[in-house]
Nucleic acid binder design. Structure first.
Lengths: 237, 237
DNA sequence: CGCGTTGTTGAACTGGCTCAAAGGACGTGG
DNA sequence: CCACGTCCTTTGAGCCAGTTCAACAACGCG
C-alpha cells in the first residue's frame, strides 16, 4: 500500500509540520520565503548565465540564496573526476541556510539564472530575535533531511527505471506540474545521471523505456509529460 | 587530495559548528546529551532484547531516545519486502528529535539494548526557553543532514568494496575506535547490505576482499580491525 | 549432539557500464 | 536559407560487477 515514491511530493514535504514551538505560524510569515522578504533592503539581485559558478564547496557561507528563475545544481567534484549532484534547486528554493560556516556544495547555474542574495548575518539576527523565524528554519532543515533520506532510499533500493521515474515525479511535484502537463527538464542527461548514481546512457535508455511503456511522453528531449502518477508501472518493472 | 571518505569521522561531524547564535556554548551543556541530563527527572530507562521493536515508522513522535548500550537500526520496510536501513544508532546517539510529529523510521534493537526515553514535550519546553538548547538542536540537525548527504555520495559514487570500507571507517570513527583496535560489528551482514544498497553475498565478498588485501583483519565475523585509515587502497580498487 | 541461524563460497546470469558511433538540436557564419 | 561545427542525446554491442540461486561451513544454543 505504501507509495514507493512516497516522499516525492512537494505537498508531503511542505506539510511536514515541525513539532517544536510556534507550529501555527502567523499569516504572512508562514514560510522562509516570506521571512526573507523582510530582509529585502539588504538583498541583492544577481544574474548568472548557463554553467556559471555561483559558489564553491568549502567557501565561507556568508550568503543565503533564493532562486528567482532558472535552475541550479548542487554538486561535489571528486579528485578522480567523479561528480556527485546532491540536488537541484528550482525557483523559490532557498540555499545556504542549513549549514555551518562552510558551503557544503558547489552551486552551478544549469540555465540562465536570476537569484536574490541575502547576507546571512542579517538572517541570523532575525533568527535570534524571532521564534517564528526559528520555527521556519527548523522546518526547512527538517524538509531537507526528509528529502535526503528519501534519496538515500532511491539510491539504495531502486533500479535505473525506478530511479528515473522517482526523479521525474519529484521534479514534477516540486514544479507544481501534474499528470498531463508539460514538465520542463532544464538539466541535461549527465546531470540526472550524476544525481541518480547512473550513467548518461542508462538514464537515456530508462527514459526511452518509460516512454515505450507509456508512462511518460517526451515532446522534446528537455520536456516531458507524466501520463500517470500511478507509479506502479515503473516500480513493477 | 580530498579524502574520499571525508565525512566519515565523528570529529568532522561534531565540529560542524552551526553558525546561528550561541556558537560558544557554556561548559556542561555543550551537546545534546548534556542538555537531556537536565530532563533526568522525567526520563525512563527501558530495555529491549535483540530484534525487539522500539517504535514504528509513522508512530506519533512523543519520545526522544538516547541509547545507553546496544545498537539500533533505523529502517523502512517496503510493501514488496525490500528493506532500507537509513542508519545505525550507537551508544550515546539520540533519536526522535529531528522530526515532525511522526517517526520517520522503524527502530529495532540489533543487540540487547538499554536506552533512556525522554518525553518530547519537556524537551520542547526547554528549547523554547533556552537559546543554547536550540543551538544544540540545530547542530544536531545539521550533523544528521551532513551524514545523510555523505551517505548519498557513498551510494551514488562508490562500488561495493568502497561502500563497505566507508561503512567500516565511519563505524570505527563513531565508536571512537582507531586503526589497530578491535571494532565490534553488532549488526549482521544483511543489515549492512540493506544499509549500503548491496546484497548480503556482495557484502561478505567485499569484506573478504578487504581482508585479502590486508586493509582489515577479522578475528571473528563480528569483530574487525582496520589496519590502516589510509583508505586509498579501497578507493583505488 | 542436533538444529536453527548466520556467514561464506561457488557458478551462472543480468542490469547497468564501457566503448563506439550515429543521430538530432542549436548557433554561427557564409 | 543553408552549410557547418559543436554539443547533447540516442542507440548498439560487448563486458563486468554485483545479483541470484544453491550448497556448504561456522556458530550459538537447547
Amino acid at each position: 500500500m505504501t507509495n514507493t515514491y512516497g516522499m516525492a511530493g512537494k505537498a508531503a514535504m511542505k506539510t511536514a509540520r515541525f513539532g517544536l514551538g510556534l507550529a501555527g505560524a502567523e499569516r504572512g510569515e508562514r514560510d522562509l520565503g516570506s521571512v526573507l522578504k523582510a530582509l529585502q533592503s539588504h538583498a541583492a539581485r544577481q544574474r548568472f548565465e548557463r554553467n556559471a559558478l555561483i559558489c564553491s564547496e568549502g567557501d565561507a557561507a556568508r550568503t543565503i540564496y533564493k532562486i528567482v528563475s532558472g535552475t541550479v545544481r548542487l554538486c561535489r567534484h571528486m579528485a578522480d573526476g567523479r561528480r556527485h549532484i546532491a540536488d537541484f534547486l528550482l525557483p523559490g528554493d532557498i540555499f545556504g541556510l542549513a549549514e555551518g560556516g562552510r558551503q557544503p556544495f558547489t552551486a552551478e547555474a544549469i540555465s540562465d539564472l536570476s537569484l536574490i542574495a541575502y547576507p546571512r548575518v542579517q538572517f541570523d539576527r532575525m533568527a535570534e530575535e524571532s521564534a517564528l523565524v526559528r520555527a521556519n528554519l527548523l522546518a526547512h532543515l527538517s524538509e531537507n533531511l526528509a528529502a535526503a533520506r528519501y534519496h538515500h532510499f532511491v539510491l539504495g533500493c531502486q533500479n535505473s527505471k525506478e530511479r528515473v521515474m522517482s526523479f521525474l515525479i519529484r521534479l514534477a511535484a516540486r514544479s507544481d506540474v501534474f499528470a498531463g502537463d508539460h514538465l520542463e527538464l532544464p538539466m541535461g542527461r549527465q546531470d540526472i545521471a550524476d544525481h541518480l548514481g547512473l550513467t548518461i546512457e542508462t538514464v537515456s535508455r530508462a527514459i526511452g523505456a518509460l516512454k515505450a511503456e507509456g508512462a511518460i511522453s517526451l515532446p522534446s528531449a528537455h520536456e516531458i509529460i507524466l501520463n500517470s502518477l500511478n507509479h506502479r508501472n515503473a516500480v513493477a518493472a
